[in-house]
């Protein structure tokens, strides 16, 4: 099992280091996107972005980048591997494909932590915002990443069946942005609580944001965050297994 982790880690690092232009241009794109949004919004509205809570804005963007790394990486990997032809070889290794793609998703997040930290440092420098980090935030941060990981499996399931996930990834980017902005998890009423448990990441992002902002967190938000993670991860695992079986039954693993 350890060999699987090491192999995937080495492959990702080698590809990132060997083609630094890809890695750096990805980081610059994410940085410039934030700069464009931030200064553009300030210019248009002529008022402070985020109601003056710059730390919340930067934090939201950082979480969005990590969620994107976890979810989109799985989809893009499957699309690229189907295109390059290595997907079939990956499905021939004596590990369950679910495990292989879970490890890949995890390694994608770990590999993105360093570029992400660099981007965040840049964002903090230009916005003059700062975080007050609390160790308690590690739990919701872990929940955010683990849920994004499960969401990545859901994307990968579709990738196995339809291969071309580019357009879908664009939509997911905006859905994830909506999830960060919408305060669904703190809305009152059983219906909203259920929505927060089922729409991936809504509760986890709220939990993380509130903890870092020093806002009192209700038990409902904690519960929603944990249930949401469990639902997303189980759905990801089940659907990926189903997509794998369906793709093999239809003989479309190698199609692109």
């Amino acid at each position: 099992m350890m060999g699987l982790f090491i192999a995937e880690w080495r492959r990702m690092v080698v590809e990132a280091v060997r083609y630094p232009l890809d890695t750096v241009s990805g980081m610059v794109t994410l940085f410039m996107l934030f700069v464009g949004l931030f200064f553009g919004a300030r210019y248009i509205t002529q008022s402070p972005v985020g109601g003056g809570r710059l730390d919340t804005v930067v934090l939201g963007y950082a979480v969005w980048m990590l969620m994107m790394a976890a979810t989109s990486d799985m989809g893009w990997q499957i699309q690229n591997e189907a295109q390059n032809g290595t997907l079939e070889q990956v499905m021939l290794v004596p590990w369950s494909s679910r495990l292989v793609f879970l490890v890949r998703g995890m390694m994608a997040i770990v590999a993105f932590l360093v570029p992400c930290a660099v981007i965040i440092a840049g964002l903090l420098a230009i916005t003059h915002a700062h975080f007050v980090w609390t160790p308690l935030a590690l739990v919701p941060m872990g929940l955010v990443l683990a849920t994004a990981w499960g969401l990545g499996l859901l994307v990968a399931s579709l990738g196995l069946l339809i291969k071309r996930v580019g357009q879908m990834m664009q939509i997911i980017q905006f859905l994830l942005l909506f999830v960060i902005i919408a305060p669904i998890a703190v809305l009152a009423g059983l219906g909203w609580h259920l929505v927060a448990m089922l729409v991936p990441l809504t509760a986890q992002v709220t939990l993380l944001r509130d903890l870092l902002n020093g806002v009192a967190v209700t038990r409902w938000v904690w519960l929603e965050a944990v249930v949401n993670f469990a639902v997303t991860m189980i759905a990801g695992l089940v659907l990926f297994g189903g997509a794998d079986r369906l793709a093999r039954r239809r003989g479309i693993l190698g199609h692109y």
Binding site: V14, E15, R18, Y19, N84, G85, T86, Q89, L92, G254
Partner: peptide, 15 residues
Amino acid sequence: LGAVLEGSRNLYWRL
């Protein structure tokens, strides 16, 4: 089992 699939579909070209 070991398999060599048709074409250049078996390796990571950047490695």
